[in-house]
């Protein structure tokens, strides 16, 4: 099957309200699944979003790098 993307091996959830848009998780993700969102949370930050779930391997490196423990990870 041409062009089929590898199936995700995990998923994350980012706490939209708690994220302070520090961007540390973005380069941490080896698969570049996260990017800064456009919606602003109650704190006024444009929180990070799980933009490309299809590539997630559930490695949890993003969660390890988040200073505000905003990311939960499942496999």
């Amino acid at each position: 099957m041409p062009g089929t993307a590898p199936l995700p091996k995990g998923r994350i959830e980012i706490d939209f309200e708690r994220c302070k848009a520090c961007e540390l998780c973005i380069p941490a993700c080896p698969k570049n699944c996260i990017e800064m969102g456009t919606g602003t949370n109650r704190q006024g930050f444009a929180a990070a979003v799980f933009a490309r779930p299809g590539d997630c391997t559930g490695c949890a490196v993003c969660a390890e790098c988040c200073p505000d423990v905003c990311i939960q990870v499942w496999r």
């Binding site: 704190q43 930050f45 949890a60």
Partner: peptide, 27 residues
């Protein structure tokens, strides 16, 4: 994906902190 592999440590309260964005105190 039902097996949670990363979650908030029990000893850390589920509250937002006063630290600035990206401050390594959080880590």
């Amino acid at each position: 994906f039902t097996k949670q592999v990363f979650s908030r440590p029990r000893s850390l309260l589920d509250v937002s902190t006063h630290y600035c964005p990206g401050c390594h105190h959080g880590i």
